[in-house]
Computed example of a mutant assay.
Amino acid sequence: MQRFPDNLGLATDLLLHTETGMVELRDDYIVVRTPEAPEYFFGNMLVLRQRPSASDLKLLEHDFGQLVGIPPLIAHRTFAWPENADSEVTFDAFVERGYDATVCRVLVAHPDEVIQVATNPLVKVRPFTMQQDWDDWFQMQLADMSNPTSIGSQRYMAHQQRAYRSLIERGLGNLWGAFIGNVQVGSLGLFFLDGIGRFQTVITGARHRKRNVCKTLVTEVIRLAATRADRLVMVADETYHAGAIYEAMGFRQQGRLASLCQEPGNAKAR
């Protein structure tokens, strides 16, 4: 946490990883490892102090192999770092090497600053209470992944379910569902670490989008559960519309979080 006080997205990521995996502070990196889930790309990564340059890539890949792992156990490479709020970010040299680049906005609000927005009166919100809730969550999350039928995707989701249930059992938060009748149409996680509420895996089912499900879910969860936090944190991909929804609700950008991920089989020769 103390390493990134100006980037609550990265700081809370590391707090969550400390609870569900292993985090090691080193001179040049923060090493994140989740030994029981080698397919978890962002649970097995190197966190950098700043944006890398193309000339850093050979050393970064070497150090990733030494500190995180190599194939066949660790078949990907992931690097993440705090990014400046308004800088232009280009990753052409990394993309040419088979990396996917992502830049996210880190959005922060005090619970009292959240604005009431249009909601869907048909949507009821409650924490997960039964196995069916988890089963429906698993299928919805899996369907939203790029390769939902792969064994790696299914093992990753099974790990995420175990990790979230462990956090819930320790009283650190909950997963919440949005329901129309008995059908789960969306969900999110909200976990509390050092007085900060961090949202996780906010999703609306494909057939129920553009019906204010997300707005209803976030608004209700904050109303019901956010008294434990003095700050609430969302991390939203800059290329998706969700960030605009959260900003309309009163969240404000605090910083950005960038990453490079080379998925298995995507490495390209120099």
Rank of each mutant, 00 (worst) to 15 (best):
A109R: 05
G195I: 07
F91Q: 07
E263Q: 09
Y164K: 15
Y99S: 04
A269N: 10
V106F: 11
F179N: 11
E220G: 08
F128K: 02
Y99T: 02
G243P: 03
P72N: 02
L57R: 11
A244E: 11
F128S: 09
G243V: 05
D112C: 10
V202T: 10
V123F: 06
E24W: 03
L16Q: 14
R165I: 03
S259P: 04
V233C: 02
T227K: 15
D6V: 05
M145K: 15
Y240Q: 15
R228H: 14
I74K: 00
T90F: 08
A236I: 01
H208W: 15
R77A: 13
Y40F: 08
E19V: 04
V47F: 09
E113H: 14
G173M: 00
H76M: 07
V235L: 10
G98M: 09
M145G: 11
H241R: 13
T129D: 12
F179S: 11
S187H: 15
R228G: 09
H76I: 06
Y164V: 12
R207S: 15
L10C: 03
V89K: 05
L167W: 03
L59W: 03
G21M: 00
Q161I: 12
V47N: 01
D230W: 08
A37R: 00
N174H: 15
R223K: 12
M140A: 14
G152A: 15
P111W: 04
R126L: 08
K210D: 14
N212C: 10
R162E: 14
T20K: 00
T102S: 11
L190W: 00
R270H: 09
D86H: 10
L57W: 13
H17T: 05
D56A: 05
K268D: 08
P71I: 06
R223L: 08
R26Q: 13
H17G: 05
T216C: 10
G181P: 12
L188M: 15
A258R: 03
E36Y: 01
G9R: 07
N147S: 14
F179M: 13
E238W: 03
A248R: 11
P71L: 04
L14S: 07
L188P: 00
V235Q: 06
I151D: 15
L188N: 07
E39D: 15
L67S: 04
A37E: 00
H76D: 07
G177A: 12
L142M: 13
G189N: 00
D135W: 03
I70N: 13
G21K: 00
H241M: 09
P5F: 01
L25R: 09
I30G: 01
V89I: 15
D6Q: 14
R256W: 11
E263M: 11
Q66A: 10
D112W: 06
C261P: 02
A269P: 04
Q131W: 03
Y240S: 13
T204N: 08
L257C: 05
P264D: 06
C261Q: 08
D13N: 12
L14H: 09
L122V: 06
Y164E: 13
A163C: 06
N84E: 14
E61L: 08
A93M: 09
Q161E: 14
R162T: 12
A93C: 09
V202C: 11
R231P: 02
D13M: 10
R207I: 06
A85E: 10
R49M: 05
G173C: 05
G181N: 13
R252E: 07
T20L: 02
G186I: 10
G189V: 03
C261A: 13
M45I: 04
